[in-house]
Amino acid sequence: MEDRLVITPMLDRDRQVGAASVDLRLSSDFLIARRAEGSGIDPAESDERAISSRQERITVPFGERFWLHPQQFALGSTLEFLRMPPHLGAYVVGRSSWGRIGLIVATAIMVQPGYRGTLTLELINEGETPIALYPGLRVAQLAVHALTATTAFPYEVAAKYVSAIGPEAPKLAWDADEVATMKALHNRLNKVQPPSTPVAN
């Protein structure tokens, strides 16, 4: 099990496993923005709870639909739970039929070796008309590739998103230390050093 790629549940293996990729289905969970909440997202100021409070989790039962309007952004997730072994990486990308009506399913497409969980999909409608998304439909595909060697740094070691079971809100606050570092660099590079002690005449 340690070294196996697991994609579960696989509802229809014959239809989902292609020549060089595996089709992934949309789950019934979505996160959408509450536009009236807060002023905006600033990684330097936001904590996870602040970002979560701006998002509403909704469940769309199988057989029902979620309308994604032009230019609307929503987080969805794959129905399948993935377990990536340490010697495989993958990319999640859209399927061409959906792309032709303007649906983008993922912008952060890399799936790291060692990742476990459902994949959060960044759903954007770049088309001109609303798109009905039915949970269970194959909207994405996973292209798996072998690494030349097993990674020494699998995702699980310092993972942000572990064993996700649905769309997860961004954890930008995890990078807050880097924002602080950048601000410190700014000070070092741009600020005029104030005199430490007054100079007596």
Partner: peptide, 18 residues
């Protein structure tokens, strides 16, 4: 037990059944 030991969602048997 095996699936959860490897942090994998325990929904599907190895033969594909639920």
């Amino acid at each position: 037990s095996e699936l959860t030991r490897y942090d994998t969602l325990p929904a599907q048997r190895h033969d594909g059944g639920p």
